[in-house]
């Protein structure tokens, strides 16, 4: 075998057949250059493996699930089955609701837990969550961009403007929650000039 770093890399990675591995092993006995490369690979691997896994400090999966919820909650079942299930669940639900109201609240899927409410509100809830999410992204951009470079970003500002309209429209029925994140942006923006 001739010197071939690719073979050495695959050998180190355990992606060679037994036959190929034997060849590489034989080559490594005579070739300082390749043996050194293998050492370097192993050293790098142990250093990189020691690097920590990072925690974002918030549940990004849950955020994603919240964005999707409406569709994700409708498995493809036939209408008759749905009707039967709904009727059954309704009866069970009423029974459980009457006797164990607190427990049922805990049993609800996380997606509709925000206020413990079902029905009309949940749609708004999800829309607000999506809008809030967008706002957060914009907020972060502002925060990251302005401290180091006080420049104008007409694209973002225009986007924020559009968001403001959408949020204020939605927040007429959900006054407490939505405007806060927007206010934060404004305050931040004012502070940073």
């Amino acid at each position: 075998m001739k010197c071939a770093h690719k073979q050495i890399t695959l050998y180190w990675s355990g992606e060679l057949s037994a036959e190929q591995m034997a060849k590489v092993r034989e080559h490594l006995r005579d070739c300082k250059y390749c043996a050194q490369y293998l050492d370097e690979l192993q050293a790098l691997a142990s250093d990189i493996q020691a690097l920590p896994e990072l925690d974002p400090g918030k549940n990004l999966v849950l955020n994603a699930v919240r964005q999707i919820a409406p569709e994700a909650h409708q498995p493809p079942v036939r209408r008759v089955a749905i009707l039967a299930t709904v009727t059954g669940l309704l009866l069970v639900g009423i029974a459980v609701w009457t006797y164990l109201p607190r427990n049922t609240q805990q049993l609800r899927p996380s997606i509709l837990q925000a206020d413990g409410r079902w029905g009309e509100d949940s749609k708004e809830e999800i829309r607000i969550a999506a809008v809030k999410n967008r706002l957060q992204i914009l907020k972060r951009r502002q925060h990251l961009t302005f401290p180091s470079r006080p420049a104008r970003f007409p694209g973002i500002e225009k986007e924020i403007h559009g968001m403001q309209h959408r949020v204020s429209r939605i927040s007429t029925c959900m006054t407490e929650r939505c405007p806060r994140s927007f206010r934060e942006i404004l305050i931040h923006k004012r502070r940073k000039g």
């Binding site: 849950l62 699930v65 919820a69 994700a72 409708q74 498995p75 899927p109 996380s110």
Partner: peptide, 9 residues
């Protein structure tokens, strides 16, 4: 895959 969000989570 069947649409169970809790499993997905």
């Amino acid at each position: 895959q069947k649409g169970n969000t809790i499993a997905a989570e």
